[in-house]
Design a protein around this nucleic acid. Sequence first.
DNA 1: ATAAAACCTCAAGCCCGGTCGAGGTCAATG
DNA 2: CATTGACCTCGACCGGGCTTGAGGTTTTAT
Lengths: 144, 144
Amino acid sequence: MRADDLSVGDVARRCGVRVSTLHFYEASGLIRSARNAGNQRRYGRAVLRRIAIIRVAQRAGLSLAEIRAALAGVPDDRAATVRDWRRMSKSWRAGLQERIDDLTRLRDQLDRCIGCGCLSLSDCPLRNPQDVLGAARSGPVLLG
Amino acid sequence: MRADDLSVGDVARRCGVRVSTLHFYEASGLIRSARNAGNQRRYGRAVLRRIAIIRVAQRAGLSLAEIRAALAGVPDDRAATVRDWRRMSKSWRAGLQERIDDLTRLRDQLDRCIGCGCLSLSDCPLRNPQDVLGAARSGPVLLG
DNA sequence: ATAAAACCTCAAGCCCGGTCGAGGTCAATG
DNA sequence: CATTGACCTCGACCGGGCTTGAGGTTTTAT
């Protein structure tokens, strides 16, 4: 085994994921592997960065399908470039900020409602989440 | 049908959820229903507030199991009191704040890394999420 | 009285993100 | 050169959060 090549176990250990997860990621088209003479997976070091990116993106709230799309432009045989990474992280930042904003609004509403018990009032923001969630869901308002 | 009782369809329409979701919530022990002579579900208005609470808690990141536990103290036949609501929202606020903090840290790290492309460095905080996630996961560090 | 709409139960199915196990092969070590 | 641990594939399974469909009953509107 060439010193530069990593086995699936090496990668799992170094990334803190299970071997089965690597198999799963490969089956899902997130990573690829070369095979040695005995059909065992061999990875270059680039895969470590790729997996790091996957995990960051997951924390940022992306589904594996979205991550796959984002990684589509990154060759799997060499490390993602700084440019690649910059492109992806920039595009993820916006969604991340949206999630933060949504949760922050929810927290503030919760604070107000803790003070006033206003869940009973028809204009409580908690009873009318459409205001917060935007036009994503159409439909009637929750009136108690 | 008594004017005060709501059918499953009424509740679904007013809460913006599907009838199947209400069945599912009932089977999961989140809501209960009385039955009329013909075995159809009939709800009091209290269920509307209960469902509002479920949806708020979901947005705050709780699983249905956690929500069920939180709602266990709230009688299902009358509306949750201000006191009930205050207790729940207080206890959820902490977890919500934690999620906000985690996402905010991630965003800030992302910003720093966008600037420096440092995903390649072994000391990049994004590569070593243990610092952020705490001691929950033991295991090796991600080294590129 | 009848047709349509709404309801019932129960089982199965779906998507997500993995995880596990069986049965078999490969590689590093003494 | 045998053992032992790491690896392979494939299929099944898990938990979460619902949705769908079949087959049958009830309610409501005309």
